[in-house]
């Protein structure tokens, strides 16, 4: 290959890698967030008494939600907004605030894992769900 061709090829590879990097990060956090949302669905059905209360299910579901939320949090890599992503650019200009919200939500999910009786489920779930809302209000674009 001529030098100029090689340079062009190198640039093209870099560009493709860049796109792949952004879309991998997006796909990974999107899938993780969907799982967090799925857990929320299971637990709100229980809180609304559509399904019977089961402390073991609450604990396991909230634990998975915590793990998936942390996975999602790790995928907000720089320069991965845009395209299909609903992430707002402000995430990367207010990173400390965004990370603090992730942390606070993870703590609420830990508290949810400790729910032992039916009466405690509703308030613990609403506290966790309210902190998802705070972040989606500030840092997620409408679809």
């Amino acid at each position: 290959m001529k030098l100029s061709k090689r340079i062009v090829a190198a640039f093209a590879a870099l560009a493709v890698a860049g796109v792949a990097y952004a879309s991998d990060a997006y796909t990974a956090r999107h899938e993780a967030m969907e799982k967090v949302g799925g857990g929320m669905g299971t637990l709100s059905a229980m809180a609304k008494k559509e399904t019977p209360f089961d402390a073991a299910v609450v604990q396991a579901t909230a634990k998975t939600m915590e793990a998936e939320l942390k996975k999602a949090a790790a995928q907000f890599l720089p320069d991965t907004a845009g395209g299909k992503s609903r992430a707002k650019a402000e995430i990367w200009t207010n990173r400390a605030d965004f990370d603090a919200m992730m942390q606070k939500t993870a703590e609420a999910l830990v508290a949810l894992q400790g729910v032992k009786d039916e009466a405690a489920l509703m308030p613990a779930l609403r506290a966790a769900g309210g902190s998802c809302r705070t972040c989606h209000d500030k840092y997620r674009l409408p679809e």
């Binding site: 609304k48 609403r126 809302r133 409408p142």
Partner: peptide
């Protein structure tokens, strides 16, 4: 009605972004 009153606190996830949360 429950979705409007609880929003994402009870997992109604489409009521949070773009100014809808407020």
């Amino acid at each position: 009605a429950l979705a409007l009153s609880a929003g994402e606190e009870l997992g109604y996830e489409n009521l949070s972004s773009g100014g809808m949360a407020a």
